[in-house]
Simulated scan of single mutants.
Amino acid sequence: MNQAISISMLDGVIKRTIETVEASKAQIFEISEHARQQGNTLKLELHELRQEISKVIQKVDALELAYRKSRNRLVLVSRNFHTYTEEDIRIAYEEASRIQVELSIFRERENNLKRRRNDLERQLRNLEETIERAEKLVTQMGVVLGYLTGDLSKVDEALETAKQHQMMGLKIIQAQEEERKRVAREIHDGPAQSMANVVLRSEIVEKMLKNDRILEAQMELHELKEMVRMSLADVRRIIFDLRPMALDDLGLVPTLQKYIQTYEERTQVTVDLVVFGVEQPLKSSVKAAIFRLVQECLNNVEKHAGANKVQVKLEFLEDALVLVVKDDGIGFDVDQLTAKGGSFGLLGMKERAQLLEGTMELQSSPGEGTKVMFQIPVKY
């Protein structure tokens, strides 16, 4: 009873903590979004300001040239007063004075615009730093929330292997948060940034059309079309990374072939996909898990192995599916890595295999490459 009360009290404390952390996380996210909106507004203003500065500089250059010519004209008529009339001298003097005044005005305007530009650039840098700090805080809070929202109903069972499960759980949550952060960053730096540019440049096109600058507007619209096309390609790639729809439409093997082709083009690493047996219909969750295992293995090869060739072997047995990924990279000391607690990638793959009631075996040594083997029980 006391134990139940203690767990109940602990659960209440954790729930209140979770609510507080979630509220703080939402507030930080709002701050980040507000800063991002301000940044987009500043970027638009900065773009227009730079265009105006360019025009003013051109005007200043033209006025400086005109002023030099007017000064030369004034010197000429002053020295040859017997040749020119007083009216000629007066006109030359007034013209030089007028250009000098106009030049002074535009120089002052140039300086004011540059000061405003520098101020906007400084504000934009500050906003970008604020957004970066906010994103880090959101990631950290996500890790805390993921850890706090664990199931407390099996505390006694969890305590038996508390240290191991705590380490693995925390690392998995961190890996999940990093993956979410990576996807968010890809969306922010890719489609979101492109869409912001589309909004900015569409406003420029709108101004061009109002000023009857049709040809320039058509050129801008052509560039906008290309930008939207590239953004669409980025969105499709991100969607494929999150959950390849081809898994349900085409099956596991064709989806792996498509992914490997893209992987080879991006990394210049040769990947040989070998399939034994006939592909059998698998549950959607099993297909997704197998695809993620291959994806994670190849990501590890790209990041750490320094390999030139990789073999991916997929074998369909009567009651199991065997996956082997072998590379000719630099390899590593398995015992040494295990003593350090393993890596996020290997822990994640092991956890995914265990969720499928399967096994994972790792073989590697320095200079001898790496071989990862999975055996997943399946029912066709």
Rank of each mutant, 00 (worst) to 15 (best):
M1E: 10
M1L: 06
N2G: 15
S6N: 04
S8D: 13
I14K: 06
K15E: 14
K15V: 09
E19D: 09
K25N: 01
I28A: 01
I28R: 10
I31N: 11
I31M: 10
Q37E: 15
L44T: 02
L49E: 03
R50N: 08
Q51P: 00
E52Q: 12
S54K: 02
S54E: 03
K55Q: 14
Q58C: 08
K59L: 15
V60M: 06
D61R: 13
K69F: 09
K69I: 13
V77C: 03
Y84R: 07
D88A: 10
R90G: 04
I91M: 10
S97Y: 03
I99K: 00
V101A: 05
R117T: 05
D119V: 01
D119A: 12
D119E: 12
E121Q: 11
Q123I: 03
E128P: 03
E128Q: 13
E132V: 03
K136I: 06
M141N: 08
V143K: 09
V143R: 06
L152S: 12
K154C: 08
V155M: 11
A162S: 08
Q164V: 12
M167T: 10
M167W: 07
M168R: 14
G169I: 00
Q174N: 12
Q193G: 12
S194Q: 12
N197T: 11
V199G: 11
L200V: 08
S202L: 14
I214P: 02
A217W: 02
Q218E: 05
L221Y: 08
M227S: 09
S231C: 13
L232H: 00
L232K: 01
R236T: 01
D241F: 04
L247R: 05
D248H: 01
L250Y: 12
P254F: 07
I260C: 07
Y263C: 01
E265D: 11
E265L: 08
R266K: 12
R266N: 09
V271Q: 00
D272Q: 14
L273M: 02
F276A: 13
F276N: 12
G277Q: 02
Q280H: 05
S285P: 01
R292M: 09
R292Q: 03
V294R: 07
Q295L: 01
N300T: 04
N308Q: 15
V312P: 09
F316Y: 13
V325E: 11
V325F: 02
K326H: 07
D328Q: 06
D328R: 05
D333M: 04
V334R: 12
D335G: 06
Q336L: 11
K340E: 13
F344G: 09
L346G: 02
K350T: 04
L355W: 07
G358N: 07
E361N: 07
L362G: 02
K371D: 05
